[in-house]
Every structure is written in C-alpha cells, then in structure tokens.
Design a protein around this nucleic acid. Sequence first.
DNA 1: ATTTTTTATATCACCAACTTATGAAAGTCC
DNA 2: GGACTTTCATAAGTTGGTGATATAAAAAAT
Lengths: 150, 150
Amino acid sequence: MRDTDTLSAEDLAIAGGFERFYEVLRRLTPRSELSLTAASTLRRLERSGPHRLCELHAPEGVSQPAMTQLITRLEKEGLAKRGSDPDDGRAVVVTITDDGRAAVARRREGRTRALSALLEQLPAEDHAAILAALPALERLSDLMAEQPPL
Amino acid sequence: MRDTDTLSAEDLAIAGGFERFYEVLRRLTPRSELSLTAASTLRRLERSGPHRLCELHAPEGVSQPAMTQLITRLEKEGLAKRGSDPDDGRAVVVTITDDGRAAVARRREGRTRALSALLEQLPAEDHAAILAALPALERLSDLMAEQPPL
DNA sequence: ATTTTTTATATCACCAACTTATGAAAGTCC
DNA sequence: GGACTTTCATAAGTTGGTGATATAAAAAAT
C-alpha cells in the first residue's frame, strides 16, 4: 500500500541528504532584512526583469493577496516599484530598484562569506565533488522551477 | 572596501548555485502540516533523541519563547511530548512520539517522491554527479550544524 | 543555613506575513 | 453595450515569530 518500492535507494539517499542540507542552509542566512519570499521574489526580478504581479505569486508559491502585500512592503522600503502597462490598465508591472539589487547583493555576500569559511574546512576532494555536481544541481533547479505547482 | 577579493570565483559559483537550489527546494515541500521550524525540530528529536527545551531553541535559530510555543503546539497535535528530568526540576525534556515520527516520514516521502520524478528526467551523468557529491554535502552539513550562531 | 544570583521555562502583548473571501476596475467577447 | 473574465486591492482572521517579564528550581555566596 505504501508504494515505497517505486523509490530507489539512491533517490532516498539524495532526498535525505537534501533534506538535511536544506535545513542547515536555512540557518546560514541569518535573520535578514528580507523574508524568504521577499528575497526569492527580488532575485527573480533581478534575474529575469520586470514582471506583472499576477506572474509572480504562483511561482513563489503564495496567494495573490500575499504578493500584493509583499510588493507594497518592498515598495515602502524602496526595494521594488510599481509601474503600469500602457497596453493594459489592469496590470501592475513590478521592477526591482537599485536599492533592491543592493539588498540582494548584501544577502548573497553574507551567505557566500559564511559558506566560504566552511568550504575551506572541507577536504579538497569534497570541495571538488561539490564543484563537479554544480552544473547538475543547476539543471535540477531548472527542472524544479518549471514544475507544476506540485 | 568591499573586500570581495577574499572570495574565490569557485566559492561564488557554489554559493550562487546553492542560493538558487535552496529557493527551488523550498517550493518542493508543499504547504505542509508542519512549519519549517516544526519539521526541523522534529527531525532533530528523531535523529538525536530527547532534548531539553533550552537545547533546542538556539540550534533552530528561534527565541526560547518561540520554542516553548512550538513544543506546546506539537504536544497538542500529539507529535511530541514533554517530560521531566528527575535530577533537575526546572528542565523540560522533549521527546518525539510515534505520530511525530510518522509525520516526519510522510513529509520526507512526499518530498522524495517529487524529487525522484525530477531526478529521472536528469541525464545519467548528472544523476551520478549529484550522488557522488552527497557525502561531501553531508560533511558540509555537519560543519554548518556545529557553526556559531552566525 | 539563609540570602542572592543564575538558569530553565512559561506567559504576555505585540508584530509580520500569510490565508480566504470579496470588491472594483479594465479588458474581452458575442 | 451588457455579460463574463482577468487583474489587482482590501478586509478580517490565523500562524509563528519577537522582546519583556514572571516564576520556580538550582547553584553560589556569605
């Protein structure tokens, strides 16, 4: 009934490792100025440019009102701004500001610095193995990103 | 002034990859019955046995009142229980229940299943690279876990 | 052996970020 | 041009967090 047999031992090992990794990685980003969703949304705006509000909430896994409120907060803090689409009066086009980019960069640098200190303590072969798996993780991330809402 | 030069290109690449990976991994665990802290705490209790309340809040990165409230919630849902230490009348010893273990297992299985479906779509060499990096990630997780509060 | 200080947990009042339900305005379709 | 649809905002309630503070047990000091 449990249907566990469709899961290979390897997949179980990978999922277990990721679970643990996720939890410790979570702690590596200290109580920041940005919430998880705020950071992720800003990074999206930075990576792939301005988006309409309705294009943001589903990929970030929150409701539409939550996204409206998040954008309001980000706007209040000067990290993003609302614009309008001349061709569609309903639309709100959200753009990241320079301050927003700076906030993302600060967060990234803080995490990178902490990670870097840890990577130094790792044996060289572990360092190499992680580096070697990076493109694979990248492709896996791509797959996850274009996933149905699960 | 930025002092960025102490960060190697490799570390930057790793941190960038992890950042992305973290965000998509976050979405892979659907709006579950357990909050992030609740899941992480239960996993800790499962992995390393009963703990006093004061030993839990710092590693999980929340305040002591937050942990008190979390344990109260978990107890109400039957996922953990409070006990006492005969040698120290102040202490509250928290233990995971069978229901708690089941909840952790359900969560893990859901995530594993979703991950497994994605891993299948990955080229075999990517799959292999991730598998090869797993022990390294494990050791990195250990390092992160015993990290000062950052 | 008291008194004082420290430690472990709980409670309180508040806040941030979400939820569902609903409303209003702009666009689309016969 | 009226009915439906899409997009965003607002309202009210919930959850999980915070700092300040209370209480009780243990440890330290006198």
